[in-house]
């Protein structure tokens, strides 16, 4: 991971598709000083057009479905999609609800899953590191 860090910085775009916020605050925690993902060059960006990695949280609600697709299409190739949290990977506790269109991999292709409800910041950084390996392979 350290070796890769100097090769290429990863820009991450985060989209919440209807999650409970738990994963989202852990993603921000991963970027702030205690875990400090930015020292590896992992940076949160404000537009999917700048991103290499999409961090997707949430079980994908009916209203967010087309927005998620649009964000995916706006992200330039090569890109990696990470589904953060249990409800992203399997819709979790919301599985029997009427307004859920997920899990995420039903709508867009997912490369890395980070399980946990919510996953710890370390796990999220580990997921991004996995995405890194994949991205290096993709090029």
């Amino acid at each position: 991971m350290i070796k890769n860090a100097f090769k290429r910085a990863l820009w991450v775009y985060h989209i919440n598709t209807g999650g409970c916020n738990g994963c989202d605050i852990e993603i921000i925690a991963a970027l702030t000083p205690r875990y400090d993902a930015e020292r590896f060059g992992i940076k949160l960006v404000g537009s999917p057009r700048h991103a290499d990695v999409l961090l997707v949280t949430g079980p994908v609600t009916a209203k967010m479905e087309d927005k998620l697709k649009r964000v995916y299409e706006q992200t330039p190739d090569p890109k990696v999609v990470i589904a953060v949290g249990n409800c992203g990977a399997s819709t979790g506790v919301f599985h029997n609800s009427y307004s859920i269109r997920g899990p995420i991999d039903k709508i867009i292709p997912v490369d890395v899953y980070v399980p946990g409800c919510p996953p710890r910041p370390e796990a999220i950084i580990h997921g991004i590191a996995k995405a890194w390996e994949k991205l290096e392979g993709k090029k």
Binding site: N16, G18, G19, C20, N21, G22, C23, D24, I25, G58, P59, T61, A62, K63, M64, K67, C87, G92, V93, F94, N96, S97, Y98, S99, I100, C117, P118
Partner: peptide, 29 residues
């Protein structure tokens, strides 16, 4: 309405002990 997950609906179809965990996930904060 973008985060409408139908939690109340789901909570009316399972026992209250399960719903404790569901209601925890209304909001992570």
């Amino acid at each position: 309405g973008y985060v409408h997950r139908g939690i109340e609906w789901a909570g009316m179809r399972q026992n209250p002990i399960k719903t404790i965990h569901l209601s925890e996930r209304i909001c992570g904060i």
